[in-house]
Design a protein around this nucleic acid. Structure first.
Lengths: 217, 217
DNA sequence: TAGATTGTTAATCGATTAACAATC
DNA sequence: TAGATTGTTAATCGATTAACAATC
């Protein structure tokens, strides 16, 4: 899934990601009372080029004016219409360890669009308790709860060894998007969105670059 | 910085990331007593293609045999020689909130190569305390401590509003790699490694895909 | 030999950037 | 008019994939 159709135009997935970033920058601008913005101003906030911004906006069919640039309020609305899901999306966290809890807090209350409605953990001491008023279920109940609560997106923070097995269970239960934060790569069917972020790899890359830079000097 | 030179060959940054993943898969294989592995087997563990694996290994000049594939032990050694930094790399966490602590625990004791040697937080209740035996410093002491402890990599988990200011401070203090987990994009000079992972954007992308998929049905 | 695999070049694909006409 | 900006096409760049000779 590298492209998506909007208004019968093909839009790269990367553009979708940037739209989300643009919107955040724009929201901050409205707080400051700004009503219009130029492409190079958006570019300066996020770090992309002005051409990139214009091209992205072109793809979603949003027009600016030569004198004033883009109307911020309208642009936010157009982006929101593309990105947002009216009723919001229900999310569950699988694995309520440190990382799972951190992600929970990170999202809690921030985005009304994205609601964490359940957590799962295999630790019997956690099962049945509430964390920030959200119930923690046994993994045995994944299928039941995912259906009952209409959970669409799963945040995967279980131990790496259990990642594959849990991912399979999630797909079977009808989950439509998985954010995999374990270090085990997982496979999902084409119609399930998958994002994998592996911190260990990132750190090793960073360390490698530090090393390269030192050798150069 | 899209490419890197190793043995006078240009290697894409993405290959570096994959090498780190390959190594992890290979380490698991050695635990199981395997001594040799085919490109398609490595490909199956991580999710890349066999051609990709062979091409990556070609780039680092590692050869396999037609009968047995690649010697696992040797391959691990070659990858380690490329990625690792003998003396290890010192890392500090900036912002000891939930997320910062989660990352701390995630790394603690796992990678001897990557050592978390300091944390920083502006909360006066945290300053001066130890978290897992690592001291928490005031942000005012960034420059001093970064130099004294030879800290090369910074994990940035401060509140989004403070990201830019802290990042600037880090660069000035001589940090050589920043992993930015705040939702504010930052800019760094060319010689500083930067990885940005924005969870909110990822979640919004996931939600968008869920929506797209539902509309299709 | 037939079959499986490696190593490598060339083709393809996708995304970014350069260039520039049109407009205010 | 000169200068700044948008919108869009074409060129470039980079990474992945296809194709295939060579080898065991």
């Amino acid at each position: 899934m590298a492209k998506v159709k909007i208004h019968s135009k093909e839009i790269p997935v990367k553009t979708i990601g940037r739209l989300s970033q643009y919107r955040r920058a724009l929201l901050i601008c409205t707080l400051k009372g700004k009503t219009h913005i130029f492409s190079h101003e958006i570019a300066a906030i996020q770090h992309v080029t002005a051409v990139q911004v214009r091209r992205d906006l072109m793809l979603i069919g949003f027009n600016g004016s030569l004198k004033q640039g883009y109307n911020i309020r309208n642009l936010i609305d157009v982006i929101s219409e593309i990105l947002d899901y009216e009723e919001g999306v229900n999310v569950a966290i699988f694995g309520l360890g440190n990382f799972g809890r951190a992600l929970f807090n990170y999202f809690y209350g921030k985005r009304s669009q994205l609601r964490i409605v359940a957590t799962f953990d295999s630790n019997t001491e956690k099962i049945g308790t509430e964390y920030n008023k959200v119930y923690c279920y046994s993994p045995y109940r994944v299928e039941e709860i995912v259906k009952k609560k209409n959970i669409k997106i799963a945040i995967l923070t279980v131990p790496p060894k259990r990642a594959l097995e849990v991912a399979k269970k999630l797909v079977d239960a009808g989950i439509k998007g998985i954010l995999n934060y374990t270090s085990t790569p997982i496979d999902v069917p084409d119609d399930v969105f998958l994002d994998e972020y592996d911190m260990i790899t990132t750190m090793e890359k960073a360390a490698f670059f530090v090393k390269m830079n030192e050798l150069k000097l």
